[in-house]
Design a binder for these strands. Structure first.
Length: 838
RNA sequence: GCGAAAGUGGCGGAAUUGGUAGACGCGCGAGACUUAGGAUCUCGUGGCCUCGUGCCGUGGGGGUUCGAGUCCCCCCUUUCGCACCA
């Protein structure tokens, strides 16, 4: 007891002790009743991890700690903070790893989840372990399947044969979002095009709303911008070019109309080739047209003489992989079909070409080429010696100014008949309106966004709950029969057949049609992992309900999510899909909000010694040994201290000494609590304290962690300055301010200071008194002609005259005033006095 | 190519948004106290010199202003998105 040697800071003991206590006392857990009755619900969400075999990496810990600090801060201010965590364990990632190590994912995942759970507990997150999800658990993916059925019934899920991105290495289709520069996002293989019947979600129906709502969201700008770009709205027009010399058959008409309907009388009119353009104003300069090689009209337009050449070209393009095809720098290639259309503006016939620089998946898969005012068309026209007329004149240009390159700037129309002289923007309108009168144009907004292909020809995912019946077609599995259990299949290796490994399991896929009872076949594709994560935040508060996906009352109370923190790598994928699913559920009447995440902040990336971390570089930070050596509190504090949370930071191994030393000093300042004085705080220290509380209270909600920590360090330096002894009132508020970062340390000190229970139970965040934060003296910078010549001390709010008098008394200032005239005095109270002389 | 962000000591990074540039921390240097604890404490630490409270200094060059890291224009570099999107 009366040990003379002071007690050392022992993070390991303290942290284990408090983690056990939080567990025992349910400090971070909510009961059903608590969720139902929470007065100030605050849903603090972080992106759940994929439980890899390697365990948590620093990036995870960085993100989770930042989110946890945010949640703990709000809790200390009296909010009921719900902070769940779970595991996103389905998907190709897990499956490929399982294949690599030769262990079944059903065995592998539980082990990984257990390891992650251990690590997540060890870092001291405020997680509610009674409300956790594992996307691979049947009682979770049952509801993922339910979600699919709701969208299906709402007409938002449809099966269609479509060209899809096929990764020959992963042997599955990929969503557009998962193809990066023509390569598979996961394995970097060149993606191929295949036509396979796939399930799609009609996210494009929501394109405009997804775009419009962005403005209402409190999100990181970079993330909103990424979504905006991804949705890729562009305004323009559909123009229709009558096809010359081709009879309009029903089949041809159907192939080029959206609806697939043949309108009354359409057969007697010209067949029309539709193009999308953002520059209808340049239609007079459209001297040729280009079809994508896959365009349905290619065959009809190709003349017998050109048949061979066109077929050869299409074959060549078809063989080419998508990367090669999408390479921008390559020379433009193409071939003439022999066919012609009539330019609706000039009435002139224009030749129709086929070229791979026109993509079937964008717009209508056909363009009018305006070589004079489009860089790609210009390049193509050059290669094939096609005419390049000018139809727009920029400033200092005339109708006959030669075109050395495509002119895409502003200007007025030339060589465009009656529209000559119109400014570009007005010409767009005028020309479109004119052509519209003839049924040859229509304003159109086009989006880059495509429908979301959710089918995966793989094993490790939730089976899509559909039964294919020869008589009834695609029939949804009745909701009461969910989940459709993913069977344990030992041979789950994918193959190149274009169907899932489940298609090899006859006893599984053979079933009866839920509608007519005749023999039928289950859908053997599984759904995309992004579907699992597109709704998990709805499930967390309701994990104890096995009869509904989410409890209506609890959902109303807790959602939308108040604060969401995660990586910007999910800026377009996960976040866009989650928004879409939420909107769809809203429209289908399941929830009363349409945006899932009120506030989203993307955290930065951690690099190490200035270099990106990667396994191949061998410079990854392994967290466990660091935590073992310094404790979770120090590790958390250091990670948050590295740099601005939203920008990331550079992890330097030696840097951890700073935060560790800070905690040690804090410990030594407080710990023999009997030695703390009980008297009033020192006025200087108290002033600094209130300034610190003010700063930290303002910065924490804005994720200004590094500067908040710096402020607390500064304050502790003040408390200990000159080896002085602290009094209780000086350190107790600091203990609370440190708590979001170092919860174990804070709990321990809080208890030793004589408090019952957890520091996080109760609104213990210190308040500040602006009066007490006020300086008695301020230092005023004195400049002469903008150059610093001295400083003077005076009372805050002192008058200019007082300041001037004091400044004149400064020798170094007065020296610069000698022999010159004082022309002007600039006085910024409490900050600066600038004397302009000359 | 388009879009966005960022360039500040040996290093990570601050700067109340136009008002003393370099807080806080790492590292480094000097000292005090220690026979022990990865300590702790004090002082110093942008560059230059003629060591004056002097000059220069926030990627480079101009500009606005009493005053610019901060605002404007041009250029350079880096990072990250998107990329033949019509």
């Amino acid at each position: 007891m009366a040990d003379s040697t002071p007690e050392r800071y022992d993070p390991d003991r303290i942290e284990k002790h408090w983690q056990a206590r939080w567990d025992q006392e349910g400090t971070n857990r909510f009961t059903r009743a608590e969720l139902e009755e929470a007065r100030e619900p605050f849903y603090n969400l972080m992106m759940f991890p994929y439980p890899s075999a390697e365990g948590l990496h620093v990036g995870n810990i960085y993100a989770f700690t930042g989110a946890d600090v945010h949640g703990r801060f709000h809790r200390l201010q009296g909010k009921d903070v719900f902070e769940p965590i779970g595991f996103d364990a389905f998907g190709i990632h897990s499956e490929n790893f399982a294949l690599k190590v030769g262990t079944h994912p059903m065995d592998l995942i539980p082990a990984n989840v257990a390891n992650f759970t251990r690590q997540l507990r060890r870092i001291g997150g405020m997680f509610d372990w009674d409300h956790t999800v594992d996307t691979t658990a049947p009682d979770y993916y049952r509801w993922t399947q339910w979600l699919f059925l709701q969208l299906f019934k709402g007409g938002l899920a449809e099966r269609k044969e479509a060209p899809v991105n096929w990764c020959p290495s992963c042997m599955t289709v990929l969503a557009n979002e998962q193809v990066v520069a023509g390569l598979c996002e996961r394995c970097d293989s060149a993606v191929e095009q295949r036509r396979i019947a796939q399930w799609f979600f009609r996210i494009t129906d929501y394109a405009q709303r997804l775009l419009d709502n962005l403005e209402t969201l409190d999100w990181s700008d970079t993330t909103r911008k990424a979504q905006e770009n991804w949705i890729g709205r562009s305004e323009g027009a559909i123009l229709r070019f009558p096809v010359l010399g081709v009879e309009a058959t029903d089949e041809l008409i159907r192939s080029v109309t959206d609806s697939g309907e043949v309108e009354e009388g359409a057969r007697d009119r010209d067949l029309l080739l539709e193009v999308f353009t953002t520059r209808p104003d340049t239609v007079f300069g459209a001297t040729y047209m280009v079809l994508a090689p896959e365009h349905p009209l290619v065959d009809a337009l190709t003349t017998p003489e050109q048949q061979e050449a066109v077929a050869a070209y299409r074959e060549r393009v078809g063989r080419m992989d998508v990367v090669a095809r999408k390479k921008v720098e390559k020379e433009k290639t193409g071939v003439f079909t022999g066919g012609y259309c009539r330019n609706p503006a000039t009435g002139e016939p224009v030749p129709v070409w086929v070229a791979d620089y026109v993509l079937m998946e964008y717009g209508t898969g056909a363009i009018m080429a305006v070589p004079g005012h489009d860089e790609r068309d210009f390049e193509f026209a050059r290669s094939f010696h096609l005419p390049i007329p000018r139809v727009v004149a920029g400033p200092d240009q005339g109708a006959d100014t030669p075109l050395e390159e495509a002119y895409t700037g502003p200007g007025t129309l030339v060589n465009s008949g009656e529209f000559d002289g119109l400014e570009v923007e007005r010409a767009k309108e005028a020309i479109t309106r004119r052509l519209e009168e003839q049924g040859l144009a229509q304003l159109r907004v086009n989006y880059r966004l495509h429908d979301w292909c959710i089918s995966r020809q793989r094993y490790w995912g939730p089976p899509i709950p559909i039964v294919h019946c020869d008589r009834c077609g695609a029939v949804p599995v009745p909701e009461e029969e969910l989940p459709v259990i993913l069977p344990r299949v030992e041979d789950f290796k994918p193959d190149d057949s274009g169907v899932s490994p489940l298609a090899r399991v006859r006893e599984w896929y053979e079933t009866d049609c839920p509608e007519c009872g005749s023999p039928a076949r289950r859908e053997t594709d599984v759904s995309d992992t992004f579907l699992d994560s597109a709704w998990y935040f709805l499930r967390y508060p309701s994990t104890d309900r096995d009869d509904v996906p989410f409890d209506p009352a609890i959902t109303r109370r807790w959602l939308p999510v108040d604060a969401y923190i995660g990586g910007n790598e999910h800026a377009v994928l996960h976040l866009l899909y989650s928004r879409f699913v939420t909107m769809a559920l809203h429209d289908l009447g399941h929830i009363d909000f349409e945006e899932p995440f009120t506030r989203f902040r993307a955290h930065g990336l951690i690099v190490r010694e200035g270099a990106k971390m990667s396994k191949s570089r061998g410079n990854v930070i392994v967290p466990d040994p660091i935590i073992e050596e310094y404790g979770a509190d120090t590790f958390r504090l250091y990670l948050m201290f590295l740099g601005p949370f939203e920008e990331g930071g550079d992890y330097r191994d030696s840097g951890i000494q700073g935060p560790f030393g800070f905690l040690k000093r804090l410990w030594e300042t407080v710990v023999p609590v009997e030695a703390l004085g009980d008297e009033e705080p020192d006025p200087e220290v108290e002033r600094k304290l209130h300034q610190t509380i003010r700063q930290v209270t303002r910065q924490l909600p804005e994720l200004g962690y590094n500067t908040s920590i710096a402020a607390m360090m500064e304050y502790l330096n003040t408390v200990r300055a000159g080896g002085r002894k602290a009094v209780r009132a000086e350190v107790e508020p600091l203990v609370v301010m440190v708590a979001p970062f170092c919860p174990h340390m804070a709990e321990e000190l809080w208890a030793r200071l004589g408090h019952e229970g957890s520091v996080f139970d109760g609104a213990n965040w210190p308040g500040f008194d602006p009066e007490k934060a006020k300086e008695e003296q301020v230092t005023l910078a004195v400049q002469v002609n903008g150059k610093l010549r001295g400083t003077v001390e005076l009372a805050p709010g002192a008058s200019q005259d007082e300041a001037l008098a004091l400044a004149r008394a400064e020798e170094n200032v007065s020296r610069h005033l000698e022999g010159v005239e004082l022309r002007r005095v600039i006085y910024v109270p409490n900050r600066l006095l600038n004397l302009v002389v000359g």
